[in-house]
Structures are given as C-alpha cells and as structure tokens.
C-alpha cells in the first residue's frame, strides 16, 4: 500500500485518521499493529479488511487495487481473501458452531455437503471437533474465539485479520488463542493482529506501531 490516507470530516475539522501510510505485507508475514486508541489502527484494519476504502492512495491486494472496485466486488474479496477474527467474537447466537463456521461458504456458493465437511474440518483444526453442534451460549469465551478462528480460516483467505482477538479473554485463554495463531502462521498463513497488549505482540514476528495516523516504527523481531 502506498501513500494511504483516510480523512474524516468532523464538523469543520478534517481528521486525518491515516496520513500517508506506506506498508507492504508479504506472504506468511505475522504482524502486530499496535498503537494507543485514536492512533488509526482500527481505520487501518478496516481498510486492510476491505470494510472501508481509503480517501486517497492505493491499496493493492494480490495485485488488485482495492480502492477502485465496487461494493459487490469488495464483498467478494472479503469473502475469499480476508478472514476476520473480532474482539467480541461475533458469532450468530442462534446457529450452532458448524452453521456459524460455514456462513462464509454460503456466501461463496459452496454446496451444502462440501460446506459441512469443510466447516467440520476447520473446527477440528482449532480443537473443537467434539463441539460442532453446540451453540455459542454453551461454550466458553476461548472456545467461542476458536470457532471464530475456524470461521476465518474456512475460505483459505490470503490474510487473517484479527482485531484485538484476546481483548475479551483472560490471560491463560489468551495464550491458548495466540498458540493457535502461531500454529496457523507456521502452516503458512499471513496473519495481521491488531492489539494494544505488549505481551500479545511478542508472539508475532513484526510489530508496526502507529501514532496519530502515522507509522511510528516498523520492526522485525
């Protein structure tokens, strides 16, 4: 991404949430984006996740400039290329684990039998093979987040994008979840993590620090 800017108008003022950001994420990168609140990390995540488009600049994902595509194409990219993991898990409470995990496949137009099979495999991968018919309300926070990770994995995305994935979990569970991300990274997935917890960031190989919409530091560790 080059000279990425995102401006918001608030009353008379223009808020530069992101100001001339230049970043490259390579295949199999394991990155943490850090910064205090208001630093622009959520905005950056939204743009990386194709939930939002930049005001100016270029965002290329697999060689395609995402700033130029329409809503439906953005939806398709989110479906195929991005796997989201949220702080608040965001599972649909009325559906069981299997149905939650297969949701992206429905939007991808995958046949029911294949959907179920792949969803079940993804749940096994995150260690929930025995919980596939449970509803979210019957699971612990850590288990719910693992279901969400399975959902993010299901379409074999280019990027797994996790927004404060451990923000609502206790320390022990957080480390379990980070172990899963580590294993996914070892398996060749590209992972971008948004966090403000230093010890979570230590799990990653690259740390990008944002402040006031600008990159403060970008270090490999």
């Amino acid at each position: 991404m080059q000279s990425l800017c995102k401006f918001y108008e608030m009353g008379d003022q223009i808020v530069r949430a992101l100001d001339s950001i230049n970043l490259v994420f390579r295949l199999n990168d394991y990155t943490a984006i850090m910064g205090p609140s208001g630093s622009g990390k959520s905005t950056l995540m939204n743009i990386i996740g194709c939930l939002d488009t930049p005001t100016s600049g270029i965002y290329e994902l697999n060689g395609q400039n995402v700033a130029e595509v329409d809503d439906d194409e953005l939806a398709r990219i989110r479906n195929k290329e991005i796997g989201f993991v949220f702080q608040t898990f965001n599972l649909l409470p009325r559906l069981n684990c299997l149905r939650n995990v297969e949701l992206p496949l429905i939007y991808a137009g995958v046949e029911p039998e294949e959907r179920e099979q792949r969803a079940a495999e993804a749940l096994v991968k995150v260690g929930l093979g025995d919980r596939i018919t449970h509803k979210p309300s019957e699971l612990s926070g850590g288990q719910i987040q693992r279901v969400a990770i399975a959902r993010a994995l299901i379409n074999k995305p280019s990027i797994i994008l996790a927004d404060e994935p451990t923000g609502n979990l206790d320390t022990a569970t957080s480390h379990d979840i980070m172990d899963i991300f580590g294993a996914l990274s070892d398996a060749g997935n590209t992972i971008i993590l948004i966090t403000h917890e230093e010890d979570i960031a230590t799990y990653t190989r690259r740390v990008i620090r944002l402040r006031d919409g600008k990159i403060e530091s970008d270090t490999m560790q």
Binding site: R78, N90, L92, L103, P104, Y107
Partner: peptide, 16 residues
C-alpha cells in the same frame, strides 16, 4: 446492525 456488519465482513453482498 452488528449482525449485518458481520455478514458483510464475511462476504454478504448488498443484495444478500
């Protein structure tokens, strides 16, 4: 609203 946002994030298009 949140569910709609989630569905869109997971690839639901407008028409969906």
């Amino acid at each position: 609203t949140k569910e709609i946002g989630l569905r869109k994030a997971l690839g639901a298009r407008r028409q969906t």
